[in-house]
Amino acid sequence: MKPAPFIYHNPLTPEDAVSLLASNEEAKILAGGQSLMPMLNMRFVVPDHVIDLNNVTGIDGVTNRDNLLEIGAMTRQCDLMANDLVKSKAPIIPEALEHVGHFQTRNRCTIGGSLCHLDPAAELPCLMAAYDANLTVQGPEGQREIPFIEWPLAYMIPNLAPDELLTKISFRYWSLNHGFGFEEFARRHGDFAIVAVAALLEVDDGKITRAAISIGGANISPVRLVKAEEALIGMLANEDTYKVAADIAQEIESISDAYVTSQYRQRLAGTLVQRALVKAGDRVNRS
C-alpha cells in the first residue's frame, strides 16, 4: 500500500495552485489528505502530479461579513469546531463535526476537501446544503460562485473544472434564536453515516416560520427535504408536526448498496428527521 510515483508541487498562492492545475494533466489536489491519501496508498488514484495546498496562504480561516460566514476552503475541521464565530453563529457545525472521523483526522481534514470529495454521506456537504451555501472557485479566468444546489453533478463529482480550485465557502447564518439539530446513524462512532440529517428551525409564537432539512447518505448527494420544509411553515413546533416531516422523509428517493437497502435508508431518514427536528425545536430560543 505505497502510492505510485508522482511529482509533488508545493504552491504558496491560490494563483500558483491554479496555474499548476492548468499546466499539469492528471493532477490531484492534496488538502487535508484524509481521503486522498488512503486512495493514493491503495492506488485507487494514480495521479501524475500532486498539488499540495497546505502551504497556500489566504484560503483558510473564518470571517463574518454582513451576516455571512465566509470560510476558507483550507480551514481544518478541528479549527471549525473551535472557532468562536462558528460556535455562536452556526452551532450545528461543531455538533455535526463531532461525528466526522476522529480527532486525529479532524486535525487535518479541511472543509474544502470534504466538499470536493463529496462523499454522499459526509456531514459537511449535508450542512452546506442546509445553509444553501455558496462556493467560490478560482480558475485561470478568475472566480465564479456556485450555489450548493448546483455543486454536485453526479456521485462524488463536484461542479469543478480540472483547472479550478475551491477557495471559499460562504453562507448566511440564521437568526440568533434559531434551533438546530443534527442526527446521524453510523454503525460506529466516527464512521461515515448511513443517513445523516441536519435540521434548522425558526419559530415565532410557537409556529414554525422557517425550516431547512438536509439529508445526507440517502442518495448520491445530500438533498433538501423541500416538501417537508414547506409543509412545516405555519405549523406548531411539536412532535406531531415533526411526524409529518418524518413521514415525507420516509418516502425520500434512496440508494441501495452492498450493505444496506434503499428501504432501510428511507426508514432511517424518517427516524432521524423526527429526532433532529425534536432537537431543533427544543433548542429554539422561545423568549
Binding site: P38, M42, R187, R188, H189, D191, F192, A258, Y259
Partner: peptide, 28 residues
C-alpha cells in the same frame, strides 16, 4: 454485532477496509 466479511456472488470481497469491515471500537 459488527464483523462481517462480505463477498459478492462472483467471489469478489467487498469489505476491504476498516471503514467497511467493522472491528469493535472503544466507543461502542
Amino acid at each position: 454485532l459488527f464483523e462481517r466479511m462480505i463477498y459478492d456472488k462472483q467471489g469478489q470481497p467487498l469489505t476491504m477496509n476498516y471503514g467497511e469491515y467493522l472491528l469493535p471500537l472503544a466507543s461502542e
